[in-house]
Design a protein around this nucleic acid. Structure first.
Lengths: 224, 224
DNA sequence: TGAAATCATTACAATATGGTAACATAAAAA
DNA sequence: TTTTTATGTTACCATATTGTAATGATTTCA
């Protein structure tokens, strides 16, 4: 399951750090910014699920910034954080596209709960991620990450690794693999599997330090 | 547009009345209840958009009642109202399916804003702008801007790009695209997709500097 | 220890797949 | 109508992928 990513804009460095620490402890990815600079670019490039924005930023009003994002079509949920507490300000925050509002000094536990509630509504998650050790296979994006780094696989290699992970506690015979990955056991030879496994190994572990795939003599292959 | 209907459970009659008055003034339909009795029947019969629930009801805990509703499949947004203010209680409210939380004595203006924000989220009007990197697709105006500059697309190209952006984290197979863009998978060939993608690429990135669309060998196409 | 079986690795050739241009046809516009 | 535009199809070529065979390494077991 992909981690939810939360982008935070907070000019007080201590507070930003503290917030990131707490969010990471809860299992979120965080991206901290001390100003609105570069935030838009980041939104275009990264899959952000939610923003936490201080309204009192040096230079720009946080809520104005969010309003401009909304105009440009960014739809992510936003929680405003602020020291201000008058009606006027709360109203303005909501009107400019905020989903929730927390006043400083805030209770971190409450903030976490609000985040959870909002994410449950706005980014209902699909679980297309297969994880094995530091391998993560995104079935929809057809993407493999090894220790966080993207590695390109061909369709065959991808299907092969997927089958291995889906059956990570079994040794898979070559016949099994031919049937499930190649879909046509009779047509191919056992050696074909050898070569494919070999190619896969080289791609996911070119330095051969990690030993993901083990061959069981006379039986087949398994993850180890 | 239909008025949004808010169901309120609040045992203090004065407060209930005041709240209903304020909500109606804002243009909502309201349904007031002094206890949880009959609420479920009402939910089945009326199109309710949101519930506002006092947690301190005589007899039942409001949050328990909501939890039981959730179990039965009612998905409406819930705002809890309570005099309590400890972490414990806030947490329990959220965990049991609340979307927001307001403590008495609450500021009616803030409550109204929270209602508005939550309704916007739970019954959203769909955004007319789709963004991907420096591509912005205006679905209503049927207009594409690449880095702020208008680019003309045919209907097919537009639908294709729209589908790609709407599924920007997935690799889309040619079959999927034929089904969703051409609407008739069987009638067309896979090659048709190739050519259409190719034409689209040439329009949004004629100099081939930006690489918006990537083909995944043996799988399909995706934004990158 | 040594032969047989199994497996890893490499190189090469066959095949599948994708890109692109050209053409054909249908639909829309003039 | 003619002209333009949109879009499906085909053909051809480049390239990525993958099966196979050959060779060398490793494991098993008598």
């Amino acid at each position: 399951m992909r981690k939810r990513t939360i982008l935070i804009i907070e000019d007080e460095e201590d507070l930003l750090e503290l917030l990131e620490y707490n969010l990471q402890k809860e299992g979120y990815e965080t991206l901290g910014f001390l100003s609105t600079k570069n935030v838009e670019q980041c939104l275009q490039e990264e899959p952000i699920d939610m923003l936490i924005v201080d309204r009192n930023l040096p230079g720009a009003e946080g809520s104005e910034f969010v309003a401009s994002l909304r105009k440009k079509g960014f739809g992510q949920a936003v929680i405003f954080v602020t020291a201000k507490n008058s009606d006027m300000n709360i109203e303005e925050g909501f009107l400019r596209g905020g989903d929730d509002y927390v006043t400083k000094p805030y209770n971190i536990k409450e903030l976490l709960l609000r985040i959870k509630a909002i994410l449950a509504r706005t980014a209902p998650e699909k679980s297309t991620l297969l994880i094995y050790r530091d391998l993560s296979l995104d079935l929809e994006a057809h993407l493999l990450q090894v220790n966080g780094k993207a590695v390109e696989l061909t369709k065959l290699e991808f299907d092969l690794l997927r089958t291995l992970i889906e059956n990570k506690n079994s040794v898979l015979s070559r016949d099994f693999l031919l049937e499930h990955v190649w879909k046509n056991e009779e047509f191919f030879q056992d050696k074909t599997v050898n070569v494919a496994i070999n190619r896969l190994k080289n791609k996911i572990d070119p330095t051969k330090e990690k030993e993901y795939i083990k061959s069981i003599w006379g039986v087949g292959y398994t993850l180890c």
